[in-house]
Amino acid sequence: MYLKQDLYQKTILFAGEKHKKQKLPIYGLPYVVHLSNVAMEVMFAWESCKDFDIEYALQLALLHDTLEDTETSYEELEKTFGIEVSKGVFALTKDKNIAKYEQMQNSIKKILNCPKEVGIVKMFDRITNLQKPPKHWNNKKIISYRQEAQYILESLKFSNKYLAERLSFKIDEYEKYITESFQ
């Protein structure tokens, strides 16, 4: 009866433990706040358009940075959450062994070979990251980040109409940070 809630609790507790030393750069809050924001976006989108697997998407939302930012191994993730979740998280993980400018293209290529929920979570992740940039970012970095968001949108917009519109709105809204940095 309460499988979704139990699955959410299991997943957020795992992610919270794995990310417990990590903080959000701007606000200094525990990193789990970012993960829960991505999960919140999943829940709101699902209310608008129930054309994706909410349970799978929520797990991906909460775990999407686990392989990239923590000591968690693929094997541990697979043992705890199964092969489909592990594959999805792996696709969302940037390969740090390749040049930085190729990492997003490589990740998008992996995402396109996965169920649409993986692309949906990638777009949600970028939506939640299109907030006020860190103070140490220069205008070039802000412009580059916005362009990368546009690339994500163009590559994955087929995944969910509601989400594509939301990401497009956030990209447009992010423009204000570019303008502000010229003043």
Rank of each mutant, 00 (worst) to 15 (best):
residue 54 I to D: 06
residue 90 F to R: 08
residue 179 T to C: 12
residue 77 L to N: 01
residue 174 Y to V: 02
residue 15 A to I: 00
residue 124 F to C: 14
residue 96 K to I: 04
residue 173 E to K: 14
residue 107 S to K: 14
residue 173 E to Y: 13
residue 82 G to H: 03
residue 162 Y to F: 10
residue 78 E to A: 14
residue 42 V to H: 12
residue 150 Q to S: 08
residue 133 P to G: 04
residue 116 K to C: 01
residue 76 E to Y: 07
residue 79 K to L: 10
residue 15 A to G: 05
residue 162 Y to S: 08
residue 97 N to V: 01
residue 50 K to Q: 14
residue 153 L to M: 12
residue 107 S to Q: 15
residue 67 L to K: 09
residue 130 L to I: 14
residue 157 K to W: 11
residue 132 K to S: 08
residue 74 Y to A: 02
residue 91 A to T: 00
residue 54 I to W: 07
residue 72 T to R: 09
residue 164 A to S: 13
residue 34 H to L: 04
residue 26 I to S: 09
residue 79 K to A: 10
residue 14 F to V: 11
residue 114 C to H: 04
residue 74 Y to V: 07
residue 125 D to A: 08
residue 15 A to D: 00
residue 167 L to P: 00
residue 182 F to M: 06
residue 154 E to A: 15
residue 61 A to Y: 05
residue 162 Y to E: 05
residue 158 F to M: 13
residue 138 N to D: 13
residue 16 G to Y: 01
residue 74 Y to H: 04
residue 89 V to H: 01
residue 62 L to H: 10
residue 169 F to H: 05
residue 53 D to I: 01
residue 138 N to M: 03
residue 176 K to I: 07
residue 13 L to K: 14
residue 144 S to V: 08
residue 179 T to S: 14
residue 89 V to A: 03
residue 84 E to Y: 08
residue 174 Y to R: 02
residue 44 F to M: 12
residue 150 Q to V: 02
residue 15 A to N: 00
residue 144 S to N: 12
residue 164 A to C: 07
residue 136 H to E: 13
residue 115 P to H: 06
residue 55 E to F: 07
residue 51 D to S: 11
residue 143 I to W: 03
residue 121 V to N: 06
residue 139 N to D: 05
residue 162 Y to P: 04
residue 112 L to T: 09
residue 45 A to M: 02
residue 4 K to H: 11
residue 150 Q to T: 02
residue 98 I to C: 05
residue 122 K to D: 06
residue 119 G to E: 02
residue 54 I to C: 10
residue 25 P to L: 10
residue 165 E to C: 14
residue 28 G to R: 06
residue 75 E to Q: 15
residue 126 R to V: 13
residue 103 Q to S: 14
residue 15 A to S: 05
residue 70 T to L: 02
residue 99 A to K: 14
residue 83 I to M: 11
residue 109 K to V: 01
